[in-house]
């Protein structure tokens, strides 16, 4: 009797391992167990890779943490690009993007599918960058530094240089620095990230009308600071 019990116990152990590897080997022992499990993992990864965001989130919520990896792979450049547009510091943007994904990882099991995954991710990123800017503002306040004036002077000096020696990307970045929140993030989400007005309303958690006016005002401000650049004839 004890033998039977014991073997069943072990059988269950083996089976549960097999099922967690998503293999159809059932209880039969297969000789090429090791390579074949490796193959099944790779295969199932390919299948997972093809799932859409929503399915991946569901998979994650069912305990398959691997799904998170593909969500990260799919959206990391978006988030990094957004943060880079806001701060224009490459390493810092990457660092902040990691924090955003860590936050997402910890909160993903509470995700309720009320919005799409990437707008949710954008929201976390926007909130995180606002915190960061608030922090910086406070630091500036205590250090009595007038950053904005510096930026403006630099911007004007750069615009004045010859178009051949000028880095337009740098100018746009400096221009964006001059635009205050919440107008800046609205413009970035619309014109750099290419989100629709509805998606932006979802990310920023505000009315469509507010989004419209924020984008318009943000663009107007940016137009004002980059005016000399825009007035030139472009090819």
């Amino acid at each position: 009797m004890e033998i039977a019990l014991g073997s069943r116990d072990i059988g269950v152990r083996a089976r549960s391992f097999v099922s967690c590897e998503q293999s159809e080997q059932s209880t039969n022992y297969k000789m090429e167990a090791a390579p074949s499990t490796a193959r099944t993992v790779e295969l199932s990864i390919d299948e997972i890779r093809r799932l859409n965001d929503e399915e991946l989130v569901k998979l994650f919520q069912q305990g398959k943490e691997i799904a998170f990896r593909f969500l990260v792979e799919r959206h990391q450049s978006r988030i990094r690009n957004l943060l880079y547009s806001i701060f224009h510091e490459r390493e810092f943007a990457d660092d902040l993007a990691q924090e955003v994904f860590i936050k997402a990882y910890r909160a993903l099991h509470r995700f309720r599918f009320e919005s799409s995954f990437y707008t949710w991710l954008y929201r976390i990123a926007i909130n995180r960058s606002r915190d960061e800017m608030r922090h910086r503002k406070l630091q500036r306040f205590f250090s009595f530094e007038q950053l904005d004036e510096g930026v403006e002077a630099e911007l004007q000096a750069r615009i004045a240089t010859h178009p051949k020696n000028r880095d337009d990307e740098e100018l746009v970045a400096l221009g964006l620095k001059m635009v205050p929140e919440p107008f800046k993030s609205a413009v970035i989400l619309r014109d750099i990230e290419g989100l629709t007005y509805e998606e932006i309303a979802d990310v920023l958690k505000c009315e469509l009308g507010t989004v419209k006016s924020r984008i318009a005002r943000g663009r107007a401000m940016l137009r004002k600071v980059l005016k000399p650049l825009l007035e030139e004839p472009r090819q």
Partner: peptide, 26 residues
């Protein structure tokens, strides 16, 4: 005109390049 130019300028801003070690670090 300026608005169109601005839009074009922002859209043509190069995106950050792929960071292959992002996941490992994360």
């Amino acid at each position: 005109k300026e608005l169109l130019q601005l839009k074009q300028l922002l859209a043509s801003k190069p995106r950050v390049e792929e960071n292959t070690s992002f996941w490992v670090a994360l």
